[in-house]
């Protein structure tokens, strides 16, 4: 049965009083995801904005067991936690890693890939704010084309990131894990039901949640949700779900209003027509790819539960 907003509990798993910036997309995602996951969880957080805004010792926003060590080991750490739970006979406990996009697409990719390949019984959540926000907005592999960051600044010669966003969800689909999904803070029902499905699935589950960042993207702090909606509308972010090899597109993008989306954000404000055209072309190609990939996998894996 699909969850509705009223089904979520009032009680916080991720407490108020955390120190995320006003309007933080990541905090919005995490506190609601935690409500769906419930109390029988263990959380691992690598170095990230979250590892700071969830409180510094002796303070902690998590009301559930929490573990943190370093930046690049989320996949490995949650593997260790999951195996320990198995030994302790705590089969009802879900082990959840929550990392940023830098900790996922870049420095943590190896450990993530290893854990996925071993099909560890864990949920890996990447909150994607498209740069290293904890250290003050440096580019990550997940930063989109054209975006200005402190390491892809707008200069006289080059303006913004020259390369394109790394498609980590696709990389995860290539690992043939039971569940891969993308979601956005701006689509509440889609998000919470994907978390629910992830929770009810066994094995390795990957969820990447689009989470706008006020200081990193340079927009008015009340516009977090609106930006997330525009991103899905224009094709800068897709809502996808890949279950046992079968890809489904949850929401058909209109593939328009890219400029409206870009102009709302300081990080894209410098982009000229040529750069915008390049970006438009790249997302259209991506969209065609996903449509084809969905058709193909629907055919290949239809009716097969044990397809992976």
């Amino acid at each position: 049965m699909r969850l509705k907003l009223k089904d979520l509990p009032e009680e916080n798993i991720f407490s108020s009083g955390h120190t995320a910036c006003a309007g933080c997309g990541a905090a919005m995602a995490i506190r609601n995801i935690a409500k769906v996951l419930g109390k029988e969880i263990i959380i691992y957080v690598p170095a990230s904005c979250l590892s700071v805004f969830n409180g510094l010792f002796p303070s902690c926003a998590w009301t559930v067991p929490y573990h943190h060590t370093v930046f690049e080991n989320t996949g490995a750490a949650i593997s260790g936690l999951s195996r320990a739970m198995k030994r302790k006979g705590l089969d009802n406990v879900t082990v959840v890693g929550i990392a940023g996009d830098g900790g996922t697409a870049d420095i943590g990719l190896q450990a993530l890939s290893g854990a996925a390949e071993r099909n560890e019984d864990v949920i890996y959540i990447c909150y994607d704010n498209e740069a290293y926000m904890n250290t003050g907005v440096q580019r990550s592999g997940s930063t989109p084309h054209g975006a200005s960051t402190t390491t892809t600044p707008v200069g006289k010669l080059m303006k913004g990131k020259q390369d394109f966003k790394k498609d980590v969800p696709l990389i995860m689909m290539a690992h043939s894990v039971p569940y891969v999904a993308t979601a956005s803070v701006s689509f509440p029902l889609d998000l919470i039901n994907k978390v629910k499905k992830a929770k009810e699935t066994k094995g390795f589950r990957y969820l990447q949640v689009y989470a706008p960042c006020v200081p990193g993207w340079g927009y008015e702090q009340s516009k977090t949700v609106e930006l997330g909606k525009l991103a899905v509308e224009c094709g800068m972010w897709f809502l996808l779900e890949c279950e046992n090899g079968q890809l489904k597109i949850n929401r058909e993008p209109k593939m328009k209003n890219l400029e409206t989306y870009l102009k709302m954000q300081g990080r894209f404000r410098h982009m000229d027509e040529k750069q915008i055209a390049e970006l438009q072309e790249s997302i259209e190609r991506k969209w065609e790819f996903y449509k084809g990939y969905a058709d193909l996998t629907q055919r290949l894996y239809s009716g097969s539960e044990a397809s992976v």
Partner: peptide
């Protein structure tokens, strides 16, 4: 650290509830 109430306030899991972030606005 586990959750505990002390004369210095709350410590450990869930203790951010005492942070008056309302003063930021």
């Amino acid at each position: 650290i586990r959750s505990q109430d002390t004369e210095y306030g709350k410590l450990g899991p869930g203790s951010t509830v005492q942070n008056e972030t309302g003063s930021w606005r």
